[in-house]
């Protein structure tokens, strides 16, 4: 039996949904006879059992409020104390701002190799070697990486690159409380500590939106870009943008999709006047359906599109609005 651990995250006092994606990743590495899956949950959470119902065999819950997800050192100490008892073969975290902070910190401490932002994982049955595949060179190539020494083999995986397993209320729940190890309270006290949260209104839903309409430099000026907002509200969609549109001040940075913006995987991505530079594609190429409208038949985004519409966006947007007259956004959960 091989052991796979995931680093669970919390959000507003509950298990964060991205943790369920991690459990789906862990479960995808082998059958239940081959691997057991444990979730390590640092920080207070009201519903640790949800991790079991979504695929974990065991939860190690270190519920001390000193573990607030911000300070890395105390979390590394919690893992250190667990590793003193047993070392799993594989450790996965989400490539979120939290996972991308805590896991490298832990990896350095424990001498672990770490691969960032994987989009494919495969556990070799015979050897137990984890093949970790990630986009590299700005999305231009896929690199497969393995860890040559030290256990666990550690990787962060890109959020929304796998769907959580269906919640199974019949699964056994096993939650083991983990005490704060020596030194962890002092490490937490060194900080950083959270003073205040400032919710940003504009982009709240972009990461989770099923439907994203996006615009780029093809809109030519800010007033042009406003047309996209009309379509978005008609469709109940979130707005995405290329870096060109953001740099020109047509829309705020949290809407930027791509390498230096957000990575999203909506069910539907509808792009207007975006050429499809590799850095943009890196942020949306796993979308379910991609539709692109562009004047240039050679726009690279077309190669990645399910529907490629060659035309003028200024002509098409009002027509699309008219064609949508008889429709309304579907109710969404």
């Amino acid at each position: 039996m091989r052991e796979v651990w995931i680093l669970a995250e919390t959000k507003a006092g509950r298990v964060a949904p991205v943790s369920f994606e991690l459990l789906a990743w862990a479960r995808s590495l082998g059958s239940p006879e081959e691997i057991s899956v444990a979730a390590v949950l640092p920080g207070p959470a009201a519903d640790p059992e949800e991790l079991c119902l979504h695929g974990a065999d065991l939860v190690y819950h270190a519920a001390d409020p000193a573990l607030d997800g911000l300070a890395a050192a105390p979390v590394a100490l919690v893992f250190g104390s667990l590793f003193a008892r047993r070392r799993p073969e594989v450790l996965l975290a989400a490539a979120t701002t939290t996972g991308r902070t805590l896991l490298p910190y832990l990896a350095a401490r424990e001498g672990l190799g770490l691969t960032a932002d994987c989009t494919e994982l495969e556990l070799e049955r015979e050897t137990g070697v984890l093949l970790q595949t990630r986009p590299a060179a700005g999305g231009n190539i896929m690199a497969t990486i393995k860890t040559t020494r030290g256990l666990p083999q550690a990787a962060t995986v890109r959020p929304r690159s796998r769907k959580p397993l269906a919640r199974d209320p019949g699964r056994p729940v096993r939650v083991e409380m983990v005490a704060l190890p020596a030194g962890a309270a002092a490490a937490a006290a060194r900080g950083p500590r959270l003073v205040e949260e400032l919710p940003f209104a504009e982009s709240k839903g972009l990461a989770d939106a099923p439907l994203v309409v996006a615009g780029g430099r093809g809109f030519k000026k800010k007033e042009g870009f406003a047309l996209l907002e009309g379509l978005a509200s008609r469709l109940g969609a979130e707005i995405g943008a290329s870096r060109e549109a953001v740099d020109r001040g047509w829309i705020e940075y949290p809407h930027q999709v791509g390498l230096s913006g957000r990575t999203i995987a909506p069910d539907f991505y509808l792009a207007f006047g975006i050429s499809g530079a590799i850095q943009h594609l890196a942020g949306m190429q796993t979308a379910g359906t991609i539709v692109a409208v562009n004047a240039d038949p050679d726009a690279p985004i077309f190669a990645l599109s399910d529907l490629a519409v060659r035309g003028d966006l200024f002509d098409l947007l009002p027509r699309l609005a008219a064609a949508l007259e008889d429709y309304r956004p579907a109710a969404r959960s």
């Binding site: 001498g111 672990l112 190799g113 770490l114 691969t115 093949l131 595949t133 986009p135 590299a136 999305g139 231009n140 190539i141 896929m142 690199a143 497969t144 990486i145 393995k146 860890t147 040559t148 020494r149 030290g150 594609l281 190429q285 991609i290 409208v293 077309f302 190669a303 990645l304 599109s305 399910d306 529907l307 490629a308 519409v309 060659r310 035309g311 003028d312 002509d315 098409l316 027509r319 064609a323």
Partner: peptide, 29 residues
Amino acid sequence: SPTRVVRIASPRLTRETESLDARSEEGAE
């Protein structure tokens, strides 16, 4: 370095694309 790159591949960056020409009135509709 505890990690090694063992394989490099091109990303599967293509989909089966349906192309439409919307430059005419009928095409756009």
